[in-house]
């Protein structure tokens, strides 16, 4: 039996679905409470929580961040956000 070849995953070659987008989600960082609801419901898994410093430069809080390379602009994140920190806007 021959040994099979292993195809390595290369993220850089992946198709970018960001160009499907008609509307884009705009994150309002000051409103985001870091609950992670948008993260789990996003069909592209392109939102992640990152620790960021608050306005007073001391407190560290989780804030959602969108990867616009893959975001298809469906708006699910905006519809599930409990504090309306995400607003869908028309792309230029």
């Amino acid at each position: 039996m021959e040994k099979g070849a292993v195809i390595k995953y290369d993220a850089l070659k992946a198709p970018r679905t960001g160009n499907w987008r008609y509307l884009y989600p705009e994150m309002k960082k000051e409103k985001c409470i870091g609950c992670g609801r948008c993260v789990s419901f996003c069909p592209e898994a392109c939102i992640e929580l990152r620790k960021e410093k608050g306005s007073d430069n001391k407190t560290v809080k989780n804030k959602a961040r969108v990867d616009y390379d893959f975001c298809k602009g469906c708006g699910v994140c905006a519809s599930v956000c409990p504090v309306r920190a995400i607003i869908m806007k028309k792309s230029e």
Binding site: A11, T17, C42, P43, E44, A45, D67, K72
Partner: peptide, 28 residues
């Protein structure tokens, strides 16, 4: 790109925008 959620099913698939099953697959 969320690395934790991308462990099995990567971003860049061509499901319709706003499709529900990627969340199911990733959760399971």
């Amino acid at each position: 790109m969320n690395k934790e959620l991308n462990r099995y099913l990567a971003s860049g698939h061509s499901a319709c925008a706003g499709c529900a099953y990627p969340a199911i697959v990733r959760t399971v």
